[in-house]
């Protein structure tokens, strides 16, 4: 959506579903989102400041922030917002834009990688293949960070999971994976090249 109210916004930074300028302008910076956020203390930029950056059109700062990747999507902020601003929706939209622009905060590589691998996984299988997900994810993190021990982190859990019959070596896949693939194609991020 063209953010005309804010003038200087490069529109290609914004996904189509970005909360409308009016929504963002509605925020009066009371900070109730930050107050209730379970992870705000870990954020480089507090939730209310993320919305503030959106109000100011400071997209570069918003899209490169770590905060958008710390957000757990619990919806507490949106639920309690006195101005009914969908703060969690702002976070979602910023993540999507950040990824599309290659601006995702490198410190939060693992979160980004996990989400991406998760989606690739369901695109291939229709349903989640947990083992494959874990394998891909670990490999990706290790290749990126060089932290070999990460491969074996939680490895102790594997036999425990096995013992509890929680590891499915041959999980079910969706029957019609063609349609899943087509849905993914049709939903490809609609940004300008």
């Amino acid at each position: 959506m063209e953010n005309q109210a804010l003038g200087q916004v490069p529109s290609e930074h914004l996904p189509v579903h970005f909360p409308s300028p009016i929504q963002v302008a509605n925020c009066y910076q009371c900070g109730k989102c930050t107050a209730g956020c379970p992870v705000a203390m870990h954020m480089d930029v507090a939730p209310n400041q993320v919305v503030r950056l959106a109000q100011l059109g400071e997209w570069e700062k918003a899209l490169r922030s770590r905060a958008i990747w710390e957000c757990v999507g619990c919806q507490t902020c949106s639920t309690r917002c006195p101005k009914e601003v969908d703060c969690a929706g702002v976070m979602d939209a910023l993540r999507e834009a950040s990824l599309a622009r290659g601006m995702a905060a490198p410190e939060r590589f693992s979160v980004v990688a996990f989400q991406k691998i998760f989606l690739e996984n369901i695109r291939r299988n229709g349903r989640l293949n947990e083992l494959e997900l874990i394998g891909h994810f670990k490999l990706d993190v290790v290749l990126h960070t060089g932290r070999i021990p990460f491969l074996f982190k939680d490895a102790g859990l594997a036999p425990q999971l096995g013992k509890r019959k929680k590891l499915h070596l041959i999980p079910g896949k969706a029957r019609d994976r063609g349609v899943v693939n087509r849905i993914f194609e049709r939903c490809a991020s609609e940004r300008k090249p």
């Binding site: 900070g31 109730k32 930050t34 107050a35 705000a40 930029v45 507090a46 209310n48 400041q49």
Partner: peptide, 11 residues
């Protein structure tokens, strides 16, 4: 559980 938006931190 509140916030201080000037410092950008939960309080």
């Amino acid at each position: 559980r509140g916030a201080d938006t000037l410092a950008g931190i939960p309080v």
